[in-house]
């Protein structure tokens, strides 16, 4: 008798002010994962190997976007998971939180236009050997929406050279960047490759009803990687 394969569990954190947590959970569920909601005040994560920090305006974006969320109790557990090789994906505000927390390099600043941008943007996949882009092809063009006021990725020339040299730029805006990011950077991974942040919202691009389904390639990659990560310990 075959037992139905357990769905890979992915924690989705809700900070006060998060507003894409439910979309992220829904998208992950539709891609075969079991989303596990986690509250920012929780000191620990449930039994997961993957966590998603969703978009929104955690703590009202006070001081700097993401600056206060990084002190949320759950972030200690996220930090520990990342250090232990677990997978962490930060989308939009989640990306800002990861940069502020020092889990990702760089910083996100106000868009050059000072306007909130909300539209589909073309992207180029720069890395396919990450847990977040495994289903994509090298150089593939994706169309995924952005919606942010502070998505201008900044790295000083030294850090930028380092990121480029080590291949940490995973995703770039194709054509003009919607926010003035250096080198058109839309998404970066950490040096170890298990933490990624991006400004575009893959969770909003999983249903043909709302346009592109390219976001499913990214979140689907994460579900695949989570399945592999959770299967491995059992195989030992």
């Amino acid at each position: 008798m075959t037992r139905p394969e357990a769905k890979p569990r992915v924690a989705v954190v809700t900070f006060p002010g998060s507003n894409d947590d439910r979309d992220a959970a829904l998208a992950l569920e539709r891609l075969g994962a079991q989303p596990v909601p986690v509250w920012h005040a929780d000191g620990e994560l449930p039994d997961v190997r993957t966590v998603v920090l969703p978009g929104g305006f955690s703590y009202g974006d006070y001081l700097r976007a993401g600056a206060l969320a990084r002190f949320a109790p759950v972030m200690e557990a996220v930090r520990a998971l990342a250090a232990d090789g677990g997978l962490v994906l930060g989308i939009c505000n989640g990306f800002q939180v990861l940069c502020e927390a020092g889990l990702l390099p760089g910083a996100l600043r106000a868009n050059h236009s000072l306007s909130f941008v909300c539209r589909d943007v073309p992207l180029t996949v720069e890395r396919t050997d990450t847990p977040f882009t495994g289903r994509c092809e090298q150089g593939q063009r994706l169309s995924i929406p952005v919606k942010h006021g502070e998505g201008c990725f900044f790295a000083d020339p030294e850090l930028l050279a380092e990121l480029e040299a080590s291949g940490q730029v995973a995703l770039r805006y194709a054509g003009e960047s919607p926010n003035g990011s250096v080198a058109g950077i839309a998404g970066v991974v950490n040096a170890e490759g298990n933490v990624m942040g991006l400004m575009p919202h893959p969770e909003h691009a999983v249903d043909p009803l709302t346009g592109s389904t390219d976001g499913a390639l990214m979140l689907g990659s994460l579900v695949d990687a989570t399945r592999r990560a959770t299967a491995e310990p059992a195989a030992v």
Binding site: E100, F154, D156, L159
Partner: peptide, 8 residues
Amino acid sequence: QLLANPLI
């Protein structure tokens, strides 16, 4: 630790 982001 909080009030400024030393990178920017």
